[in-house]
């Protein structure tokens, strides 16, 4: 209870959130003490001053005050420290020859952040960081600009796609409006015709209806072709931005140093059915075949074919592994190996 109240009260001016609901708290990354906005204005407007908290002798500046993002002040602090460290140590994976080096680099960063947040060897690490920064200043700047360039490209792409999408929506809307206006006009015309001419009204109505449906389908077709063209444009923009990364043939992945044997030990009984990509006229198994009628099963991707295939695959997986022979040979090989060397 006590805690909650103190959370809602500025410890400097004792203003309560109950009385002034618009109150905002700010913190300063020097000491992370919570001070309300009006106090910050009051105390620090005239230049740097000492933190009003008792026993905190840090000097704070107004421009360093910021909103608290995380409820836990320790996390807030760690995020700030991490941001600061990462601004200096900003290499990416491509800057390393091996994955191991990169991981070691990441590990080092984590260690620094941890030590800084927990005040272990703080001065040493600060010194190390500043030294690193002075030594690698140019590289760091280069990488930072490269990174911002990348981000810019991405935002540009996003913007381009967004404008294209907007244009598409606008076009569709225009078309529809046009259609509505035209229909209105034609209806007026029809009423006029019905009033003034001596042709059979039934015949006129029929003619009108046929025309309407024809026009609306024409309009739909127009919209479709238009949106298709625009979508292609959007895709094109995306491809251009990526700069053709997907060039070059890709070798298939073979997990066991070889492809799966394409000669199967069995043939699956049954012929493919059209609607559900499953098989029919297959094995006789009342229980499983009944499940295949269950829409809940089918809807979640359950297929008779895969069930049968799995069972048959497992039936022949290791059928010709003769453990007693192979393991005896293995242990013999192990026994004779030390003698040979």
């Amino acid at each position: 209870m006590e805690d909650e109240r103190s959370n809602d009260m500025c410890p400097v001016c004792k203003t309560d959130r109950y009385l002034s609901p618009n109150m905002r708290f700010l913190i300063n990354p020097e000491c992370y003490h919570k001070i309300c906005e009006s106090c910050v204005d009051r105390i620090f407007s005239l230049g740097p001053a000492k933190c009003p908290y008792p026993k905190c002798n840090k000097t704070l500046r107004k421009n360093k005050f910021k909103n608290q993002l995380f409820e836990d002040i320790n996390i807030e602090r760690e995020v700030d420290i991490r941001k600061r460290v990462l601004a200096v140590y900003n290499k990416i994976e491509e800057d390393f020859d091996t994955l191991q080096d990169y991981n070691a680099y990441l590990e080092k960063i984590e260690e620094m952040v941890y030590n800084l947040t927990n005040n272990i060897n703080k001065e040493e690490i600060e010194k190390e960081i500043s030294q690193y920064q002075t030594e690698h200043n140019i590289e760091i700047l280069e990488r930072a600009t490269r990174e911002s360039q990348k981000n810019e490209d991405w935002t540009k792409l996003q913007e381009a796609q967004e404008t294209l999408r907007q244009a598409k929506l606008q076009l569709i809307k225009d078309k529809e409006e046009e259609g509505v206006a035209e229909q209105k006009q034609r209806r007026l015309k029809l009423v006029e015709l019905l009033q003034n001419s001596d042709v059979d009204p039934e015949e006129l109505m029929k003619q009108h209806r046929a025309e309407t449906s024809q026009r609306s389908s024409q309009r739909e077709r127009d919209i479709k072709t238009l949106s298709k063209q625009l979508e292609e444009k959007i895709l094109q923009a995306a491809v251009n931005a990526q700069g053709g990364v997907e060039a070059g043939p890709q070798t298939p992945f073979t997990p066991f140093c070889g492809d799966r044997n394409q000669f199967s030990n069995y043939t699956l009984l049954g012929k493919p059915a059209n609607d559900l990509v499953d098989i029919t006229d297959s094995y006789h198994d009342p229980y499983v075949n009944k499940l295949a009628q269950n829409r809940e099963y089918l809807g979640s991707g359950w297929r008779l074919k895969t069930v049968y295939e799995r069972a048959l695959d497992e039936a022949f997986m290791g059928l010709n592994c003769f453990i007693d022979i192979e393991k005896a040979e293995q242990s013999q090989a192990q026994d004779s190996a030390p003698l040979a060397t």
Binding site: F256, D259, R260, Q262, M317, G318, L319, N320
Partner: peptide, 10 residues
Amino acid sequence: KKYVSSDDLY
């Protein structure tokens, strides 16, 4: 070695 039989998988 080109192909892995199901026995090899086991």
